[in-house]
C-alpha cells in the first residue's frame, strides 16, 4: 500500500519533471513563431523595439492591407496555391505509380532505375539549375506554371516512401484481385491505394511543402512579378530602398500559415505515414 503510493508519487514527480523539460524545449522551438506573429502586429519602425514587444500591437491590418495593395503578394499567394496544389496531385500520381512498380514487380532494369533514383539524392541540386533553365528557355517555358511543376514531379523521396510502404501490402491481396478479374489499373487504384492512404497523406504534405517553399529555381525561371510565387515575392520585398518590415513579416507569416494549417489537419496521417515508411524494413 505505502509502497505503491510512493510509486505513484514518484511517477508523478518524474512525469512533472519530464513534462516541464520538454515544455521548456517546446518554448524555445516555438519562440521564433511567436516573435514572428508579434512582429506582424507592429509598424515597421517598432518591430525591433527594445525592450522587445511581448503583446500584439495594433498594426496587423495596416500591414496586411499595405502588403496586398502595395505589392503583388496577393497574386503570389494565388500562384503558389495553384502551383503547389497541381504539383501535389500530379506528384502523388507519379510517385505512387513508380513506388508501386518498384515494390511489387520484378522486371529488367529495376535495380538500375532504382539506383538512378538513389544517386540523384547525392547530387547537389544547384548543379542542374543552369541546364534546367536552358531547357525552359528552349521550350519557351519561362514564366509558366509547368516550368515549376514538371521537373521535380518524380521526387526521389516520394518514390522511396511509396515503395517502402507498398512493400507492406500483401501480395496475396493483389493476386486475389487479379484472379477475380481486376485489370492492373483497378488492382492499383482499388486495392493498393486505399491500403496506403496514410502514406499518401504524408507524401501529399511533403510534396506541397517542397513546392510551396522552393525558392532558387522559381527565382530563375519566373521573370515577371505577376508570375511570382510566395518565396520569390517575399524576396523581392527586400532590396535596395526601405524595407517595410511590418509588411515583410506579415508576408512571412502568410507564407507559413497555410502549410501550418495543412499540417495540423493532416498531422495524424502524417505521423502514421512516417511510421509506415520508417518502421517497415
Amino acid at each position: 500500500m505505502t509502497e505503491s503510493l510512493i510509486g505513484v508519487r514518484g511517477r508523478r514527480t518524474k512525469s512533472l519533471v519530464l513534462t516541464t523539460a520538454i515544455a521548456a524545449g517546446a518554448v524555445v522551438m516555438l519562440l521564433p513563431f511567436y516573435w514572428l506573429i508579434i512582429a506582424t502586429t507592429y509598424p515597421s519602425r517598432e518591430i525591433f523595439a527594445s525592450p522587445p514587444n511581448v503583446l500584439p500591437g495594433p498594426a496587423f491590418f495596416d500591414n496586411l492591407t499595405g502588403l496586398l495593395s502595395d505589392t503583388l503578394f496577393g497574386r503570389a499567394i494565388g500562384n503558389s496555391v495553384l502551383v503547389a496544389s497541381v504539383y501535389t496531385l500530379l506528384g502523388l500520381v507519379v510517385c505512387t505509380a513508380a513506388g508501386y512498380a518498384f515494390a511489387k514487380f520484378e522486371f529488367r532494369g529495376r535495380g538500375l532505375l532504382f539506383g538512378a533514383v538513389l544517386v540523384t539524392l547525392a547530387l547537389p541540386s544547384q548543379v542542374t539549375l543552369v541546364p534546367l533553365f536552358q531547357i525552359m528557355v528552349t521550350l519557351g517555358w519561362l514564366d509558366t506554371y509547368q516550368a515549376l511543376i514538371l521537373p521535380n514531379l518524380a521526387l526521389p523521396f516520394g518514390i522511396f516512401l511509396m515503395r517502402q510502404t507498398m512493400q507492406a501490402v500483401p501480395d496475396e491481396l493483389l493476386q486475389a484481385a487479379r484472379v477475380d478479374g481486376a485489370g492492373e489499373f483497378r488492382v492499383f487504384s482499388r486495392i493498393v491505394l486505399p491500403t496506403v492512404r496514410p502514406a499518401l497523406a504524408a507524401l501529399a504534405i511533403f510534396l506541397f511543402l517542397a513546392q510551396w517553399n522552393e525558392f532558387v529555381y522559381p527565382l530563375v525561371v519566373l521573370r515577371t512579378p505577376e508570375s511570382f510565387t510566395i518565396p520569390v515575392s517575399l524576396a523581392s520585398l527586400q532590396g535596395i530602398g526601405t524595407t517595410d518590415y511590418g509588411q515583410l513579416m506579415t508576408g512571412t507569416l502568410l507564407s507559413v500559415l497555410p502549410i501550418l494549417v495543412l499540417f495540423l489537419f493532416l498531422q495524424r496521417h502524417f505521423v502514421a505515414g512516417i511510421l509506415a515508411g520508417a518502421v517497415k524494413q
Binding site: A97, A98, Y100, F105, L113, A116, A154, I159, D171
Partner: peptide, 25 residues
C-alpha cells in the same frame, strides 16, 4: 505478384517517372 501481370505493366507505371527523369534529371 510479378506472376500474374503482363510484362509491360511495371514499365507503364514507371513511364511518367522515366520520362521526367530523362528530361529533367
Amino acid at each position: 505478384s510479378s506472376i500474374g501481370h503482363p510484362r509491360i505493366t511495371p514499365y507503364l507505371f514507371l513511364l511518367p517517372t522515366i520520362v521526367l527523369f530523362l528530361g529533367f534529371k
